[in-house]
């Protein structure tokens, strides 16, 4: 950033000595004019306010009110909504599931993306195509991907079960019900979400990996360190700041995700994959109890604020180093 600033000044000075004053003023203004800077920044700020800020404030207001889907007026009710949703068995399960969903999917994503990043770092024939294929789940709409997985895991037409029965590992009607058994259903939503997040995390780690000076692992190899020692004692420790960034982004994406659970299981079987965002949607939008839905959706805000703070700090450190 500072290099770019210096280079613009240099260009501006060069322009100053050779061209008209009008051009000179415009170039200098780009770097220093606070009005122009504010104008350039304003669309992003407005976007954040409109898309995130306003709904966020509304959610706070709703969570402390008696608003329902048909309400014409709202009244302040204090913590009544929070007290009510805490009593709900579905809420307790959803809170627990949110942590299970997030923690396990992040473990899968980080292990998977680290392996992929290391595998994709060195040039080989077809690397471009493989990178493209790995990126596909991230660029494709999640709803399409999740619907595809729903059919792959379907109780009747699952291609996985068809193979399992065809190779006589299971009898018809006894093949695993991927979305019907609580643990299998949770494992399924975790894996599908990991499949979705893997490319994002891989790209981040790949960028971090390529930034490690080659001399360090090469020197270790000359000193006799094997692949695993270089990996665990040099590569991964040096990637930790960037891994932290990937993890923190992943945690926020997962804690707030509704698409995978909603499409694959709708929270079932019997709430065993219900997470807070899906429960908030069922309660607030589909059932019309907006106040309770808002209260459910705000439960994770303190935790997400801490995670966001840590994320920004780690990102800043990674930038400095």
């Amino acid at each position: 950033m500072s290099e770019m600033g210096e280079s613009s000044v240099t260009v501006a000075e060069a322009v100053k000595s050779s061209r008209s004053g009008r051009i000179r003023v415009r170039r200098a203004g780009t770097a220093q004019d606070p009005v122009l800077g504010t104008l350039m920044f304003a669309p992003a700020v407005l976007y954040l306010l409109a898309i995130i800020g306003v709904p966020f404030v509304l959610a706070f207001i709703y969570a402390f009110s008696d608003i329902r889907i048909g309400s014409n007026t709202i009244h302040f009710v204090g913590l009544a909504n929070f007290r009510s949703v805490i009593q709900s068995p579905s809420f307790k399960v959803a809170l627990q599931n949110s942590f299970i969903f997030t923690i396990f999917s992040q473990i899968v994503v980080i292990i998977g993306s680290t392996i992929l990043a290391i595998a994709l770092e060195n040039a080989f024939r077809g690397r471009g195509i493989i990178r493209f294929l790995i990126l596909l789940p991230w660029v494709a709409p999640i709803s399409l991907g999740a619907i595809g997985w729903k059919w792959i895991l379907d109780s009747l037409y699952s291609v996985i079960n068809w193979v399992l029965v065809a190779v006589h590992l299971y009898k018809p009607y006894s093949a695993p019900m991927w979305l019907g058994e609580p643990h299998l259903a949770m494992a399924s939503v975790i894996l599908v979400h990991s499949w979705r997040l893997l490319p994002f995390s891989t790209v981040i780690l790949l960028a971090g990996l390529t930034a490690i000076p080659k001399e360090i692992p090469e020197a270790a190899e000359v000193d006799g360190a094997g692949f695993w020692r270089v990996l665990f004692e040099i590569t991964i420790p040096m990637m930790l700041p960037i891994i932290s960034v990937a993890v923190l982004f992943g945690i926020i994406f997962t804690f707030t995700d509704i698409a995978v659970v909603y499409i694959l299981t709708a929270g079932g079987p019997f709430d065993s994959t219900q997470v807070l965002p899906s429960l908030a949607f069922f309660t607030g939008i589909l059932s019309g109890d907006i106040a309770a839905g808002a209260a459910i959706s705000l439960f994770l805000v303190p935790l997400l604020v801490i995670i966001a703070y840590l994320m920004l700090r780690v990102a800043a450190r990674a930038e400095v180093s």
Partner: peptide, 21 residues
Amino acid sequence: ETPEVFTWDPSSNNRAMLAGK
């Protein structure tokens, strides 16, 4: 029954019946 009944959406029982399952 089998655990598939825990996985169903509104059209699943249509499919199961029409598939002769």
